[in-house]
Amino acid sequence: MRRTRKDWNLILIVALLGVAVLLPLAVRSNQYTLVLLTTILLYGVLATAWNVIGGLAGQLDLAAGAYLGLGAFTTGTLLIRWNISPWLGMILGGLVAIGFAFLVGYPLFRFGVKEVWYALSSAALVEVLRVTFLIWSQVGGPVERYLPYHEWSLYHLRFATYMPFYYIMLGMLVLALLVNHWIRHSRLGYYLMALGENEEAAEVLGVNTQGCKLQALAVYAFLVGMTGGIYACMYGFIHPNFFSGPMSTEVAILGIVGGLGITYGPVMAAILLVSAREFLRANLGGQLEGLYLVVYAAVLILIALFRPQGLGPLVRQAYDRLLSRVAKE
């Protein structure tokens, strides 16, 4: 029985999933590696979610940090003040993120408003939220607010080890990938592709461009907001620096480098670049910590100039070639 391409894809996905599930068990004792792996997954989730607004809807969003922070503060505050489980807090965090996202997106996704304004506003949103929460001492303030410590509490989502967070993050990643895949092959996906190609033509064909962009934005903001809740529980505290401009840019870079619109692209970019960042940090020490951002920026520029489709298609080509060789045997 000859295996079709779809079969091979399925085998690959199952294999990757298997590796992902078993990996932390292999490094169980090494917290440092666990943190690294979880961080890679975290960026994978963020970048894959970003793909919905950046790759599918074609909007350069620079506000991932804003939604992450909002999710973190919502979840964290609800937990600290009223002992509400982060499982619920995550959902609410996602909704809060959507609220703020629409504040910026609604006026700027109107037909005819130049795309760049959204990019600028989203970049500004992060910075402004950071300052706001820094000043607003009731909820934020300059000092970290710590989440209650529990050695192992599923309700509070607090653990003494990173292992459970790894699996939760993995679950989020699978969710984000599925959402991406589902949207791409749905009507929304086609509409988004069309408006990305030519907004006027899409409009006259019945595409509500503003509505579609807002839908994509909502999905993205919700996913990132949810992840913010997990983020807070992972780190055990909340702080206005969560509203990080550099992190927002990083997420966008991962999305672009991975390949706009390609479902698996951002994850690959996350694995590559976050590992590289760790490598730099480990070898060059704290003094040159900012160097990784310089490297990221350089990579972004190079990709945008020479391989604007991103790394995704390259990997796909390699995969295709591998498949055809295997199929011959």
Binding site: F111, E200, A201, E203, V204, G206, N208
Partner: peptide, 20 residues
């Protein structure tokens, strides 16, 4: 807006093709 007009039943093609 054009998309509402399209739902009502009017659409168009353009002089310079606005291709996807």
């Amino acid at each position: 807006p054009p998309h509402k007009i399209c739902s009502l039943g009017i659409t168009c093609t353009f002089q310079v093709p606005r291709a996807f």
